[in-house]
Nucleic acid binder design. Structure first.
Lengths: 223, 223
DNA sequence: GTCTTAATGTACGAACTGGAGAATTCGCGG
DNA sequence: CCGCGAATTCTCCAGTTCGTACATTAAGAC
C-alpha cells in the first residue's frame, strides 16, 4: 500500500490551492465513507489518499463528523443537479415515466457511492440527516417532474391508479437502489449477479414496465 | 447505563449455562452490529449489555469478525425458518403472489435488524458473506415456493409476463427493504414517514398490486 | 470427597485513532 | 521588496479498543 503512491512524479504538488485541496478531501472522503462507513473510515487513511495532510482536514472541516456531513451534502447536491436537468415534457406520459425510471436506474448505477452513503446513513438511523442542527435542504427536483407527468397521464386517462408522485418515486428508487446496493448479499444468497451487463438491460426495461403496468391497471375491487 | 441492570433481582445470575451465554451474546451482538455497523460496534459494549463478560465473547466466538459472522448467519437462519413454513398451495396464483408479497412485507417490518445487518454487509461489499472461507449455505426457501406459484399461474394463463422467481422476489424485496431501511433519509428528503401506521396498510397492498399487475400484463411490443 | 476440566472473571497492554498546538511557508497587495 | 494572513506541515497526545495472560470457580465423574 506504499508503493503505488511513489509512482507519481508529474503530480504537481501545487501549494496554496485551497479550493482544490478542499475538493480533493471531499472526493476522497466520500469514497472512504462509502467504502467503510462513518465509523469504519479512518481520518488518517483519508489524508493519505489525498495530496494533503490530516491537519488540513481539520483545518477545513473541523471534525470527522462535519466532514461526513459535508460529503453527504455534496452527494445530495450532485443528484439534485442531475435531476434538475431532466426534460420529459415532450414525451407522452407513458414514455415519460419510462424515461424517468431509466434516469433513476442509470443514476444509481453510475453513482454507487451515493447509494452507499445513503445506506450507511440509514444504518445509523439517519443520525446526521435528521440532526436538528439543520442539515440543509434535501428536496429533490424529480418529484415535481413526476407530479407533472402523472397529472398529464391522468388527464389523458391512461393512468388510472390512485397514487402520488412520492410513492411512484419510491417504487422506482427501491428497485434501482436494491439492485445496486444489495448485489453482494443477493449474489451470496441466490447466486445471481444483478449488475451483470447482460441482465442490466433487462432490469432497466423491467422497472419501467412494472411502473407503467401498475399505473395503467385499475385497482382491483376485491382483495 | 448502570442503573437498569441492578433492577433485576429475579434475574438469576445462573452460572454455568454455556448455551444461554452463547445465545445471549448472539442476540445482543446482532442488535449492536445492526445499530452501529461492524466497525462501529464495540466488543466491550456488547459484553456490558450481556450478563457475561468480554472474555466469554472471545472464548466462544474467537474474534469480533467471527462474532459478526455468527450473528449474520443466525439472522439468515431465522429468515429461512419463517419462509420454510409458508403454505400458499391452497391459494390461486394471484392470491398466492399477494400472500407472498405480504409475507415479505411483514417480515421486513417485524425484523428490521435483519435488514440492517444485510445493509451493513453490503456497504462493506459483502466482505463476510463472500468470504472464501465458506460462509454457510444462504439459500432461501421462498424461491422454490415462488417458482411453483409462477408455474401454476402460467399454466392457468393468468401470468403472461416472462420473468423468473428470482426477479419477482427481487422486485418484492426491494420495495419492502427500501421502505424499512431507507425510511430515515426518505423522511429527510421528502418529508414522508414510510412506516407510519396509516400508510402501512396502503403499502402492503400496493406491492401486491404492483407485482400482480406486472405479471398479468403482456410485454409491450415496442419500447 | 477430590479431581478434572469447562466456564468465568480480572486486569492489563499494545496499537490505533481522532484531534490539536505551534511552527513554517507561501502568495499577494501595497 | 516587504509584511501579513491564509494555507500548510510537523509533531505529539490522550482516550479508546481489540485482544489476551493469568487466576479462579463451579459441576460432574468416580
Amino acid at each position: 500500500m506504499v508503493v503505488e503512491h511513489e509512482e507519481q512524479p508529474p503530480l504537481e504538488r501545487r501549494s496554496r490551492d485551497p479550493e482544490r485541496t478542499k475538493e480533493e478531501i471531499l472526493v476522497v472522503s466520500t469514497q472512504e465513507f462509502a467504502d467503510r462507513g462513518f465509523a469504519g473510515a479512518r481520518v488518517d487513511e483519508i489524508a493519505n489518499k489525498t495530496r494533503t495532510t490530516k491537519r488540513m482536514i481539520y483545518y477545513y472541516f473541523g471534525s470527522k463528523e462535519l466532514l461526513y456531513m459535508a460529503a453527504l451534502e455534496r452527494a445530495y447536491e450532485d443528484i439534485r443537479v442531475v435531476e434538475a436537468n431532466v426534460d420529459v415534457e415532450h414525451l407522452d406520459p407513458i414514455r415519460a415515466i419510462r424515461r424517468l425510471a431509466e434516469l433513476t436506474f442509470d443514476r444509481h448505477e453510475a453513482n454507487p457511492n451515493f447509494s452507499r452513503l445513503i445506506s450507511q446513513e440509514n444504518v445509523q438511523r439517519g443520525q446526521f440527516v435528521t440532526k436538528a442542527s439543520g442539515f440543509p435542504r434535501l428536496e429533490r427536483p424529480i418529484i415535481k417532474i413526476l407530479e407533472q407527468v402523472l397529472e398529464r397521464g391522468r388527464a389523458d386517462g391512461v393512468f388510472v391508479r390512485d397514487i402520488d408522485a412520492l410513492d411512484v418515486h419510491m417504487l422506482i428508487s427501491s428497485f434501482c437502489f436494491f439492485r445496486i446496493n444489495n448485489r453482494f448479499t443477493f449474489a451470496a444468497s441466490f447466486g445471481r449477479n444483478l449488475v451483470e451487463p447482460d441482465r442490466r438491460a433487462m432490469y432497466r426495461e423491467m422497472i419501467g414496465d412494472v411502473v407503467v403496468d401498475y399505473l395503467t391497471t385499475p385497482s382491483p375491487e376485491d382483495h
